[in-house]
Amino acid sequence: MYPHLDHLYRFAYRMTGTREDAEDLVQDLLVKLYPRQRELEAVEQLRPWLTRVLYRLGVDRARSQSRNPLALRQDAVGAEDSDVDPLERLPSHEPEPSAALERHWTQARLLEAMQQLSVEHRSVIALHMVEGYALNELEDLLQTPVGTLKSRLHRARAQLKALLQREPNQDHQRVNTRGQRKWNVVK
């Protein structure tokens, strides 16, 4: 598995957003698979297979954390089950000069926005838009129909844009109460 560690870490980092969580996730994967080395030898395309298992592990971990009594989770703007098209939440449909985008859309803010996506949305963004996997490749890799991937991609992109459009100190927070503990923000 050594030759695949860099790739696995890279994907784990994109999924989790921090070095520590990424290292933990890869560690968990290896601990899980180490006793199954004979099975691994029979896998023809090991890298996509490992990526798939890592993805499942990452999703399971994120869900487990969200069930924790103290779990903290942002409201997902444009959550999967929302009836409202996230694009409609964009503040404006007026043409925006690239200079204005540049002012608000920075790497630091994008990193934060990525952290607010669900792990499924973050993964499809990372694999498709950052790593360059085609959606039909991801269909096999993530065992998810292309239609679902397209929907996730559309919503994730809209959510990122909506988050980036906010003024840096704009207080627009809403709280997801679906199975989560509610934050009562003290003014």
């Binding site: 870490y9 980092y13 070095r19 694009l87 043409p95 925006e96 690239s98 859309w105 844009k161």
Partner: peptide, 21 residues
Amino acid sequence: QTLRQDRTLRELLQGLPLVPP
């Protein structure tokens, strides 16, 4: 405008740094 925003977002995403292990 959507195209411009999506292109900017894609470029920004592809430029995100990766903290090494």
